[in-house]
Design a protein around this nucleic acid. Structure first.
Ligand SMILES: [Zn+2]
Ligand SMILES: [Zn+2]
Ligand SMILES: [Zn+2]
Ligand SMILES: [Zn+2]
Lengths: 136, 136
DNA sequence: GCGGAAATGAGAATCATTGTCAACTCGGAT
DNA sequence: ATCCGAGTTGACAATGATTCTCATTTCCGC
């Protein structure tokens, strides 16, 4: 939650493998999914390690995290600057978007209500062009 | 997902009990939590029913749903008009807020990327005044 | 090289959520 | 009032993501 620095975090084979594997995926993947992909690609790594590593990377701000409708956490390597996502509900394709005015506004409205350390999440979801076809 | 109408939905003791119990809670509660409260209050109801009812009410737009950091779904009876929330990460206190400009913006940015049926979620989280005290 | 802290991994444990299915209840038609 | 069929319920089992445990291994500074 707070900005606790990664006081001690060692580079390991698994850690870089996770980062690299993430780079090979265009959209958001779950820990389970990534683990399966890595195993399939001959990359030996434990499931628990994938979970721990993804959580650590997300805590370090290297990854973006969001939750699917059924509560599953999904991760994606992202550009470093603060941004948000436009996600297709059908195929999961995601586009990075920005909401300039919101950044200040969130801070302001939080302050107005006496809140500190204000953060925000914004997700815009819909159906992308590719997924329009078979819809009544 | 799709806008399937509640073709047949019968009023039952349990359904109204859930709605009433929700009214007695100020902030967001999980299905588990609500079920426990109802049982404790001498209100006999099955856990599965609480889950089903909350999901149904949320689908009908009677409830607001959001997810805690660890992925648990929490519900709250809400005013009918579209709005968002400012939630305390520590105690869970929630305030309804509005983001007028965002509504149009979401629609617009979705359209620009070829997305249809665009919806959005916005959550602002922080630490409320009451929860500031014991913090370094 | 050594020692200890950090990291790993296999499996068990946790826990929210969903599925199952027989029994029950509501509402409309008879 | 009675009957019928679909919606609803609830106890319990099953699922599935995430976390925990702990013995073993790896990394880093000395
Ligand atoms: Zn799509
Ligand atoms: Zn932002
Ligand atoms: Zn608080
Ligand atoms: Zn809105």
């Amino acid at each position: 939650m707070s900005a606790i620095g990664p006081s001690t975090r060692r580079p390991t084979r698994q850690r870089s493998a996770v980062v690299e594997s993430l780079g090979a995926v265009a959209d958001f993947v779950s820990a389970q999914d990534l683990h399966a992909r890595m195993r399939a690609g001959g990359n030996a790594i434990g499931l628990a390690t994938v979970y721990r590593t993804l959580a650590a990377l997300a805590a370090d701000g290297v990854l973006d995290v969001l939750r699917t409708a059924d509560g599953e956490a999904v991760y994606r390597r992202c550009s470093t600057h603060h941004h948000h996502h436009l996600v297709c509900e059908v195929c999961g394709r995601a586009v990075e978007i920005e909401v300039p005015f919101l950044e200040d506004w969130a801070e302001t409205v939080g302050g107005e209500h006496g809140f500190w350390n204000v953060r925000h999440t914004v997700e815009v979801v819909g159906t992308c062009t590719n997924c329009q076809t078979g819809k009544p």
